[in-house]
C-alpha cells in the first residue's frame, strides 16, 4: 500500500469512528455538537497514561475511552434534561469547555501540545475502525437500537410502554462519548501528538455533517457519509484551498434536496420489496 493511500485510509478510519460516536446519540434524537471534547478526553487520556505511567496501548486505550464514556455518563444526566436546540447548545458548550480545560492543563503541555512516545500503526487503526463498525452493526440488530428510535420518535409513548427514556438517552450519549474517546485515543497514538486546538467546534460540526449526509436512520448512513467525505475530495483533487468551501456548498445543496440523508429506511424497504417480488 502506498504511503499516500495509507494516509487517506487512516483519515477515513478516524472519520468513521467519529461518525459513529455522533450517530449513537443522534439515533436517540440528540444532536451532539461537542463530540470533539470527548475525543480530546480519549486522546489526552491515552497520551498521558502511555507517557507518564508507561502503560501499554492495550491498557491505555480502553481506560481512556472509558474515561470519556464516564464523563459522558456523569454529564449526560444533567445535560439530557434539556431537549432539541438546548441540548445541541449544551453539548456545544461542553465541547468548548473540555477543549479549553486541556488547553490550560500544563501536565499535558497546555497550549504547546503534547508529544507521545507510544505508536499505533495504520493497521491497528484500521482494526479499531472495523471493530467499531462491527459493534455498531451488532447493536443495530438488538432491541437497544429499536429503543433508540422509539425514544427519538415518541418519548411519551416509549415511557408508557415501560422503557426508561432517560436511561436510553443517557446510555446513547455515554456510549457515543466512549466511541469518541476510543477514536481520540488512537488518533493520539497514531499521530504521536495532540493539541487542544485540534478538538474544536468545527471538528464536531464536520462529524455531524458526515452523519446527516449519510443519513441517521440506518446504521449504514454514518459509514457512507464518512467514506464519501473522506474519499470524494481525494478522488476529485480539489485545490487544497477550495476543499472545505466545496464541501460546505455540497452539504447545503444536499440538505436542501434530500434532508433525510443519503441512506434511509425506505431505501432498504424498496430493495426488500423488489427482492421479494423477484423471488415469491
Amino acid at each position: 500500500m502506498s504511503g499516500y493511500l495509507t494516509g487517506v485510509l487512516v483519515v477515513l478510519a478516524f472519520n468513521v469512528i467519529a461518525a459513529y460516536a455522533v450517530y449513537l446519540p443522534m439515533a436517540a434524537g440528540q444532536l451532539n455538537l461537542g463530540i470533539a471534547g470527548f475525543m480530546a478526553i480519549g486522546a489526552y487520556g491515552a497520551a498521558f497514561l502511555t507517557n507518564e505511567y508507561g502503560w501499554s496501548m492495550l491498557a491505555a486505550v480502553p481506560v481512556a475511552s472509558a474515561a470519556a464514556g464516564l464523563v459522558g455518563l456523569v454529564i449526560g444526566f444533567p445535560v439530557l434534561r434539556t431537549h432539541g436546540i438546548y441540548l445541541a447548545l449544551a453539548t456545544f458548550a461542553l465541547g468548548q469547555v473540555i477543549a479549553a480545560v486541556f488547553l490550560n492543563l500544563e501536565v499535558v503541555g497546555g497550549a504547546a501540545g503534547y508529544t507521545l512516545s507510544a505508536y499505533a500503526g495504520p493497521y491497528v487503526v484500521f482494526a479499531a475502525a472495523i471493530g467499531v463498525v462491527l459493534v455498531m452493526l451488532y447493536l443495530s440488530r438488538t432491541r437497544f437500537a429499536l429503543y433508540l428510535t422509539a425514544v427519538k420518535s415518541d418519548p411519551t409513548v416509549a415511557d408508557l410502554m415501560g422503557i426508561s427514556v432517560r436511561g436510553v438517552q443517557v446510555a446513547a450519549f455515554a456510549l457515543g462519548a466512549m466511541v469518541a474517546g476510543f477514536g481520540g485515543a488512537f488518533y493520539a497514538l497514531h499521530y504521536n501528538f495532540v493539541e487542544a486546538q485540534h478538538f474544536n467546534v468545527l471538528l464536531s460540526v464536520f462529524t455531524v455533517l458526515y452523519v446527516l449526509f449519510g443519513g441517521a436512520q440506518t446504521v449504514w448512513g454514518p459509514l457512507a457519509g464518512a467514506m464519501f467525505f473522506t474519499l470524494a475530495p481525494e478522488a476529485l483533487r480539489f485545490g487544497e484551498q477550495w476543499r472545505y468551501a466545496i464541501f460546505a456548498l455540497f452539504i447545503i445543496l444536499f440538505m436542501a434536496i434530500r434532508p433525510q440523508g443519503l441512506i434511509t429506511t425506505s431505501l432498504f424497504q424498496g430493495f426488500r420489496r423488489r427482492s421479494n417480488e423477484a423471488s415469491p
Binding site: 429503543y147 428510535t149 427519538k152 420518535s153
Partner: peptide, 20 residues
C-alpha cells in the same frame, strides 16, 4: 401514537418491552 419511523413489527416489539 405509533413510532412513525419503525415498521409495524418493530412497533409491536416495542410493545413487548415490559416482558423483555
Amino acid at each position: 401514537r405509533l413510532m412513525d419511523h419503525l415498521s409495524v413489527l418493530e412497533n409491536l416489539l416495542v410493545g413487548q418491552h415490559i416482558r423483555a
